[in-house]
Amino acid sequence: MTIQELKVASDRIGVIIGKGGETRRSIEEKAQATISIDSGEGLVTIEGEDAIGVLRATEVIRALGRGFSPERAFRLFDDDDIILDLLDLSHVADTPQKMNRIRGRIIGRDGKARTQIENMTDTTISIYGKTVGIIGLPEPVITARKAIEMLVEGAEHGNVFSFLDRRKKEAKQDLISSYY
């Protein structure tokens, strides 16, 4: 029996449970695990015989807790290679105003910067509280994380998108040369 526990913000418990318990049941089915939720403490316990299923469910719940929608978090069930990476921003912003400015830079006007990073790296990004979550395959996640770190450090959006464009071309070139 494998057991994992994690703490989730109380405002995200409803998302984990889902309408009529739908999301929770879905996670339990996909992971072959049982989920117990203590709403008061925000404590979620996942247990099951299949250790990998329990770990996958833990990652999905962690993603839900960090602002991802169930549809986006469930990508973690689609492929064993897909990972969740969490970037903690609390060390770069010591005031709520600075945190808002940094989140705003990552999101961009009308969400355009985040969408562009997602599209150029084939990742899914969620900005929630003091964290940025990234879901995707390892290499693209590393690239998306680097782009977000560049924005956090004050790089211009144009420079970040140029970096992403170069990375995309390099990845395509690597794919072509490994094929031949």
Rank of each mutant, 00 (worst) to 15 (best):
95 T>K: 00
164 L>V: 02
174 D>Y: 13
121 T>N: 04
137 L>K: 04
39 S>Y: 14
23 T>R: 02
16 I>S: 05
136 G>F: 10
7 K>M: 13
48 G>H: 09
165 D>V: 08
14 G>I: 12
150 M>C: 04
159 N>V: 12
8 V>G: 03
2 T>F: 15
98 K>H: 03
10 S>H: 08
49 E>M: 08
167 R>P: 13
67 G>I: 01
95 T>V: 00
29 E>M: 04
128 Y>P: 03
69 S>K: 00
126 S>E: 03
65 G>P: 14
110 D>A: 10
171 A>I: 13
73 A>D: 10
65 G>E: 02
13 I>N: 03
45 T>E: 15
13 I>R: 00
129 G>M: 10
143 T>L: 08
84 L>G: 02
47 E>A: 12
119 N>S: 12
165 D>I: 07
47 E>I: 00
127 I>V: 15
121 T>F: 07
55 L>E: 11
88 D>S: 00
108 G>E: 04
22 E>M: 08
27 I>L: 08
104 G>E: 08
12 R>F: 11
93 A>Q: 12
88 D>Q: 00
99 M>A: 01
92 V>C: 06
80 D>Y: 10
131 T>Q: 12
24 R>M: 14
69 S>M: 06
51 A>T: 09
122 D>R: 00
70 P>V: 14
93 A>S: 12
49 E>F: 15
168 K>W: 14
147 A>S: 01
135 I>P: 11
122 D>H: 06
54 V>N: 09
122 D>E: 10
46 I>C: 06
20 G>F: 11
17 I>R: 04
91 H>D: 14
87 L>I: 09
126 S>N: 10
139 E>H: 08
132 V>T: 11
167 R>G: 02
130 K>C: 04
159 N>K: 15
82 I>S: 01
17 I>C: 06
91 H>E: 14
109 R>P: 05
161 F>K: 04
26 S>K: 07
21 G>F: 11
176 I>F: 14
67 G>H: 01
165 D>N: 13
169 K>H: 13
102 I>Y: 11
67 G>N: 03
95 T>M: 05
6 L>F: 14
170 E>Q: 10
34 T>W: 08
147 A>T: 01
136 G>K: 01
124 T>P: 06
36 S>F: 06
84 L>N: 05
100 N>P: 04
21 G>P: 11
94 D>W: 08
66 R>T: 00
106 I>R: 02
127 I>G: 00
139 E>W: 07
79 D>G: 11
137 L>D: 05
138 P>C: 03
167 R>F: 01
76 L>Y: 05
53 G>E: 06
111 G>V: 05
165 D>R: 07
165 D>E: 15
2 T>C: 10
80 D>R: 06
97 Q>W: 09
22 E>R: 14
63 A>W: 01
18 G>T: 09
